[in-house]
Each structure stands twice: as C-alpha cells, then as structure tokens.
Design a protein around this nucleic acid. Sequence first.
RNA 1: UCCUCCCUAGCUCAGUUGGUUAGAGCAUCUGACUGUUAAUCAGAGGGUCGCUGGUUCAAGUCCAGCGGGGGGAGCCA
Length: 466
Amino acid sequence: MIAKTKIKVLLKTPEVVGIGNDVKVEGWVRTKRGNKNIAFIALNDGSIIHSIQIVAEVANFDEEILKQITTGSCICVEGTLVNSQGQGQSVEIQAKKIEVYGTADAEIYPLQKKGHTLEFLREIAHLRPRTNTFGAILRLRHAMAFAIHKFFNDKGFYYLHAPIITGSDCEGAGSMFRVTTLDAVNPPKNSDGTVNYNEDFFGKQTNLTVSGQLEGELAALAIGEIYTFGPTFRAENSNTPRHLAEFWMIEPEMAFYDITDNMDLAEEMLKYLMNYAIENCYDDLEFLQKTYDSELIERIKSIINNKFERLTYTEAIDILEKSGQKFEFPVSWGCDLQAEHERFLVEKYFQKPVILTNYPKEIKAFYMKQNDDGKTVRAMDVLFPRIGEIIGGSQREENFDKLSKRIEELNLPAKDLWWYLETRKFGTAPHSGFGLGFERLILFVTGMANIRDVIPFPRTPKNAEF
RNA sequence: UCCUCCCUAGCUCAGUUGGUUAGAGCAUCUGACUGUUAAUCAGAGGGUCGCUGGUUCAAGUCCAGCGGGGGGAGCCA
C-alpha cells in the first residue's frame, strides 16, 4: 500500500518522495487532453495553486474509466513520480492505477477549463472553491488569519472572545440585526401595543454584534493587551464592492498605549502581515498577479518598505485645500474626508500608506479621547492605496467625567452603558485600540476588486443563497 | 438608499433606422491526431432574447413597471 502524498509536496520537494518511486495522489481534474495513445490529466488537490500532470498510456486503462475523467471529476492516482519529458513541468506521475471517486457530467458541470467571470462564479459559490482563483484566495485568507494570531500571540496579546449576541447598541456603528425567538407573526404585546421583549429569550432586545470593542476594553483593562477576531454584522443597505453584512474584524485593545503606541502597533502589524504573505504564499500571489493585478506584489512590498506617513486631520485638510485639485465634494475643516480626498492623499500626494490623526470630535465616536483643544479627538485612520480606510482606531477616553459628558451630549443611552463606564470609575487607565476589517485586508493582499470575492460565502443585501 | 450602465446558447459576447429562419468564439457531443500545456483539426447538437404589460401590420430592438447584476456615491471596516 502506497502512502498518499499532497501535490504540493511532489511539486515543491520531490526529493521527499524521490524520483522513480511510487506515489498516490487524490484530487480534482482541471483538464484532460491527449490522443488515442496517451492522456494528460492536470490534477489539483488544493494544497498548492499548481496542478500535477498525470500521464496515462491509454492502452493500460479501461476505456470507460478514462471517459469518466473529465474536468471537475475526482480521482485517485497511483503511479511513478518521474521527470517530465515535456515542457511546462519538472515532474509528473506515470499512472499505473486510476480510481474515479466522483464523476462530473461534462454536459452540466458549470466550471470549464476556460476562464469565468467573477460575477458568474458568485452565482455558483458552492463550486467556486474548485477554481484556481478561489483556491489562491482561500489559502491566502487562511494564511492571513493564522498570521494575525501568530503576530499577537508572539507579542504577548491574549485572544478574547467577544460575544456575537449583544444587548447593547452602543457604538452606533450602524443598523443591527435583531436576534429574537419571539413569534414574528404574533409577538407578545404590552398594553400600549408595543412588543413585549421581557418575554423574549434574553428578557430584552438583543442584536448581532457590530463591534467587540467595548467588551475588548473591559478585558484590556484587566489583562493588558488583547485582541478579538470574529464575525461582525451590519444591517446597512450597502451595495458596494467594499461592504458586507457579515464580515470579520480584528480589534486589538491595549492598556497603557497612547495614540503613538497605537499607530506603531498598527503599522507593525500590517507590515508583518504583508511580509508573511510574501514569504508563505508567493505562488498564489504570482498567480493572482498574472491573472488579475499586474502590480500586486510590488504594491505589497511597497507597504513593507515604506514608512507610513503620519499627519493630523488638520494638516491633511491644509494639503487638500492647497492642492489645486478639483474635488466633487469641497474640503473644509470639520467635514469628513470623502473617498476622493483619501485617495488623493494616499495615491497621488504621498504615494504610500497614510495615518491621519486628531479628527474633529463631531465626526468621530463618543469613546475617543478628547484633546485639550476642545475640538479634536485622538482618532487614527490608516489609509491604504486602492481600498482607503483599512484601520480605524483611537486612544480611548479614560476620564469618567469627560466620557459621561460626551455620552450626554450625543444623547446616547447612558443607562445601557453602565458597565462600560464602570471601567472608568474603578482603576481607569490610559488605553488604545483599533479595528481592522479582515476582508479589506484580504482584498488588498489578493488584488481582488470586490469584497464578495474574498470571503467564501458573502452576505450582502438580498443575497444569502449559499 | 441615490446616480449610471447592463441582462440574447452552458460561458463570454455581436445583433445596423423595428422587418423573413437570431449569429460568433469557447464549452459540450462525434470523429481525426504518437508527449499534450487553456493542445490542435473537422463536423454536429444547443435559444421562452431576465419577467410582466404596452406601442406597432411587425419588437431581441421602442416605452413603462418589476426582478437580478456591474461600476460610482453615501454609511463604514
């Protein structure tokens, strides 16, 4: 009995098995070609972007078996690993035995050996992992997730599991998905006709989380440095290539970090991740570069090799006002920066990542630390080429009175935030944190243009088919 | 949600000022070919032109509504 081997091992380190020795591989057929004497099968098992070539002498095999080997079918091959006689690959397998695990009727199997549009592949999300493109994306997605855990673990951060179901709508980060077990048609009512949520599963209104930040702060103010990495939900009717209703977010939160420490961490992490991709996923990056984005690897390297430009919101407004550039939305101090403004700063003016700090408090969240000028808060946004804001964060307001006053000014439900405020009442500490949208990171590192193509099963308005 | 473009064969698309039987490439099927690289060559089959309604002698083509999708914007990550 021959031990099975991953195709990655055979292609990358054939010496492990040894030329001339017998091997067993299992995978899905990408293409079959040949003539009446010989058949060439490109076999892929997902371990690597490349397929291995299976060579089958037609005379040695049952005609019915060979007929079943079509694009998309799944087979097991036993044969001898040999140096290839043809161009295009260094090693190949001279097949001795082929077992068909599963056929794929060529008349109805949707994937062809020719290329498909990404839009079409979205309609067959159950099969698109079988394509080279999605194989590469899924491997990169895994590598980035793993690298994030490794980065934080190596720095002594703890992985915190924030709740998915929350009872608060505090961050104001957008509309939430209601979580309920009440009968949608006939819910229990109060005497005034409103729904009686006391009868609901949790005895109150609950929602899917829009952010784990507030819970993250609780943990940071106890065990120092933490990060969350989990799904997040926004019920916004956003129809763009950069938004999902369900996406994954990484939210580190650190005690005793000021805004500069926060920026240093964000920059170090992004550079670490880019470097990890180059060192561990080069074959996939090369494929994506060749197929979709000719500047992909160069752009990733530019993140590693450039110091991020750091400037204040006020300085950025000044640059934009003096730029002579015509913008659809005019710039003035106090307005939020539009996509076109961010793009100008990152792609034209500095031509590298930019970190903007000290935004007007009116356009930022209540929990951000207020500066002494009374006008700005210690926010930081990291802006990337192509995708804009990849990270948003801040030093947090640790002063109980200032935070309470801000909550009051913004008319937020202070009574629902009692637990959050108690961290400022008992042993408060300077601390900071930020949020990184995982899919936006994957968007950048794969060179894909649409966020629906970097998550296995995208959730967007009117779409939850798979 | 707003602006804009698109929806014709399994896929990607052509289809002229509205006019007879709606085309191509690829895929599929059949055949040919002694090592192919998205193999090549020859032949064949394959259509409710997104849906509903309207204008007209006549609609893939014009109009309206609805549905789906792309791009841009807003919200944001």
